[in-house]
């Protein structure tokens, strides 16, 4: 559209590597669907035709952690399950992000009792908390857009001193 017309004149654009990487990265965050309980149904609805998560470049749900960028933790995390969630998170390649979907993952929610972890930020670095029980697909998409903003305005340098991208 507009891009071809602009490029046809000079043939190049100038930007910073960091900005370019962030720009392309934010529009293709592949989720690892960690659907542990009922929030997973809304996560599936977000991937369905009505909400259509592919508008934001996240339609490729990868069931292998090694091919995904964001972990969607959708459901109640018990103390026993926490080890599994952490193990899968550890297998994801950097850069990786975590969306805590639903109040159970954010704070334990209505499961205020002994076996449920009262917020997965006790053992995972959570980027976005999405509230709701369960959150509507719109709310999840809102969280995804917030994550995209976060990636775009990332303060941390993407290029480490040893030359490897983070």
């Amino acid at each position: 559209m507009g891009l071809e017309e602009k490029l046809s004149g000079d043939g190049f654009i100038t930007t910073r590597v960091k900005d370019l990487i962030e720009y392309v990265r934010k529009n293709s965050i592949w989720p690892m669907p960690m659907g542990i309980s009922c929030c997973a149904i809304e996560m599936m609805a977000a991937a369905g035709p009505r909400s259509d998560i592919s508008r934001f470049g996240s339609e490729v749900f990868r069931f292998s952690p090694r091919q995904s960028d964001v972990m969607l933790v959708a459901g109640t995390v018990t103390y026993k399950m926490a080890w599994v969630v952490k193990k899968i998170y550890d297998q994801m390649p950097d850069p990786k992000y975590v969306i805590a979907m639903g109040v159970c993952t954010c704070s334990g929610g209505m499961y205020r009792s002994y076996p449920v972890v009262q917020g997965i930020d006790q053992f995972l670095p959570v980027d976005i908390h999405v509230g709701g029980c369960p959150p509507r697909p719109d709310n999840l998409l809102n969280g995804l857009m917030a994550l995209q903003e976060k990636i775009l305005s990332s303060k941390k340098s993407l290029v480490k001193t040893d030359g490897l991208t983070q």
Binding site: Y79, A82, K86, S113, Y114, P115, V117, Q122, F123, L124
Partner: peptide, 16 residues
């Protein structure tokens, strides 16, 4: 006699 919220640090969590 077991408290509803459990006994602190009786269940392990993975390190952050």
């Amino acid at each position: 006699d077991f408290p509803l919220m459990g006994i602190p640090s009786s269940l392990d969590l993975p390190k952050k």
